[in-house]
Design a protein around this nucleic acid. Structure first.
Lengths: 228, 228
DNA sequence: CGCGGCTTTGATGTTCATCAAGTAAAGTGG
DNA sequence: CCACTTTACTTGATGAACATCAAAGCCGCG
C-alpha cells in the first residue's frame, strides 16, 4: 500500500521470516487487510464461514462460544502473537467460536486460500505455522485442565496472576474483563468471583478500585493459585 | 522391511497420500518403527524428550497428565487416526502428558527430524498434518468445554455415548476405563461416577455387568447428556 | 487362601450455585 | 445536563450438588 511493502516494518514479520521468499512476501503484503476494532466489537462470529486467516497485531481479545440458552464460555484470552484464528482455521470451514475485542485491537487478515497455496509451495512456512498453532492449542488445553483442578479461590488467583505475569507485566493493572466474564472463563458464577475478590481484599492480598487491581501480597496469591 | 514397502498396505497410508513422493514414501517406510503394547503399558511418558512422531495404528489409548500429588487428569481418549502425539510434538521438546494403552495397541513412529525435513520440502504434507492436528486439538478443547458445562449425570451420559457412538458403534460394549479413570476424565470423584451409573441402572437406562454396559434407553441418555 | 486393587453404598460435611435485594456506575434520550 | 433505564457490581441467606470419609463386598492373582 505504501511506496514500499508496509509489512517490512510489521513487528510480526518474524512470524514468516526465513520462510517467505521475496515474491511471496509481496503477495502477502498486497493482499493483507488490516482492521481496527474498539473495545467490545465483534471480530469473528461463531458459525460463520472461514475465509481468512486472521491474527492479532495489537490489543487483547477473548475467544468464546455461546450456547442456545445464551450463556457463554470463554475459551481463552489472546494477545498479539497468540493466534486468533488458530482453532478450526485449518480443520473446519466454520468458526466454532466467536472473538471480540477486550481492548482496542488491530488485526491483519490473509486470504486463506492464498495462504494454503503458499504453504503447499513452502514447507518451511507450513512448519512454522504448525509450530505456532501447536503451541497455542497446548496452552489452551493445559490451562483449562489446570483451572479445572482448582477451587474457586485458586481459579481467581490463577486468573489474576495470568494478567499480571503475561499481559500487563505489573502488579497493578486494569482488569479487561467484567466479573461476569471472569466467571465465564474459569467456570464459576459471577457472585462467587466477586465474593472471592472481596475475600482477597479483606485478607490484604489485593486492593481493588473497581476494575483496577493491585496485588499486594503476591507470594500468598501465588500459593493460593497453586494449592487452592 | 518386506520385499516391497510394507506401508503400501497400511490403512493409514492415506494420511500421507497425495503428499508423499515415491522416494519419500520409501524413506518413511524404511525408517518407521512399529511397536506393540498390551493393556496398561506406557507408550509415552511425561517430561520425556520428544524424538519421534508417533501415531496409533490400532487399539485405544488415553492421554493424561499427573501432578506431584499423584492424581491424574485424562486429557482425551484417542483411537486410530486421532493423533497420539499431536500436542507438544511440534511446539515443545518434551511431552507434557503421558500415554498408556487402554486396549492392546500398535503404534508406528517416525523420526521427528526426518519428518520435519520432509515437511519443509513438501508443503502439502505439512498442510495435511496441520489439518489433522488442528482437528484433534479442536476436539479436545470443545469436548472439555462441553463436559465442564454439565452436571455429573450429564457428564457420565456424555462419556457413555462417546464410547457407544464413536468407539464401539454399538449400544453394548465393554468400558475400557475403570471407574476411577472415568472420573479423571470428566472431573468428578470415583464414588460419584459409580453412584451415577447405579442411578442410571435403577432408572432403567442402563444394564451393567461389571465393565460391560448395555444402553437400554438411549433416548433418555441422550437427553441427560444434552441437558444435564 | 489371603492380599490388594477395584467397586459399591451410606452417612456426613463442605463447597458452591441460586435466589433475593440493594448499591453503584454507565449509557440514553429529552 | 439531568432524569431515566439499564447494566455492572456487591452482600447475605438458603439449599442443592458434590466431595470426603468410612465400611464392606467382590474379584483376580500370586
Amino acid at each position: 500500500m505504501d511506496e514500499k511493502c508496509s509489512c517490512d516494518n510489521c513487528e510480526l514479520k518474524e512470524l514468516f521470516v526465513d520462510s517467505l521468499e521475496e515474491d511471496h512476501m509481496e503477495a502477502v503484503c498486497s493482499s493483507k487487510k488490516e482492521k481496527d476494532y474498539s473495545v467490545g466489537e465483534v471480530i469473528l462470529k461463531e458459525r460463520t464461514q472461514i475465509r481468512e486467516f486472521t491474527y492479532l497485531k495489537s490489543g487483547l481479545v477473548k475467544l468464546f462460544r455461546s450456547d442456545p440458552s445464551g450463556s457463554e464460555q470463554i475459551i481463552t484470552i489472546a494477545k498479539p502473537m497468540d493466534y486468533v484464528s488458530l482453532l478450526s482455521v485449518f480443520s473446519n470451514d466454520e468458526y466454532n467460536y466467536s472473538v471480540t475485542a477486550l481492548e482496542d485491537s488491530v488485526t491483519c487478515s490473509l486470504n486463506l486460500e492464498n495462504l494454503r497455496m503458499m504453504m503447499r509451495e513452502n514447507g518451511g512456512l507450513a512448519l512454522s505455522l504448525l509450530q505456532k498453532m501447536s503451541r497455542a492449542a497446548d496452552r489452551i488445553i493445559l490451562d483449562t485442565l489446570e483451572i479445572r483442578k482448582k477451587h474457586l479461590r485458586g481459579r481467581v488467583a490463577y486468573l489474576l496472576l495470568y494478567f499480571s505475569d503475561n499481559v500487563y507485566f505489573s502488579s497493578e493493572f486494569d482488569l479487561p474483563l467484567t466479573r461476569k466474564e471472569m466467571a465465564e472463563y474459569v467456570g464459576m458464577t459471577t457472585e462467587n468471583v466477586i465474593r472471592t475478590l472481596s475475600e482477597f481484599r479483606k485478607d490484604g492480598i489485593l486492593k481493588i478500585y473497581g476494575k483496577t487491581i493491585q496485588i499486594v501480597n503476591q507470594e500468598l496469591l501465588r500459593s493460593i493459585s497453586e494449592f487452592g
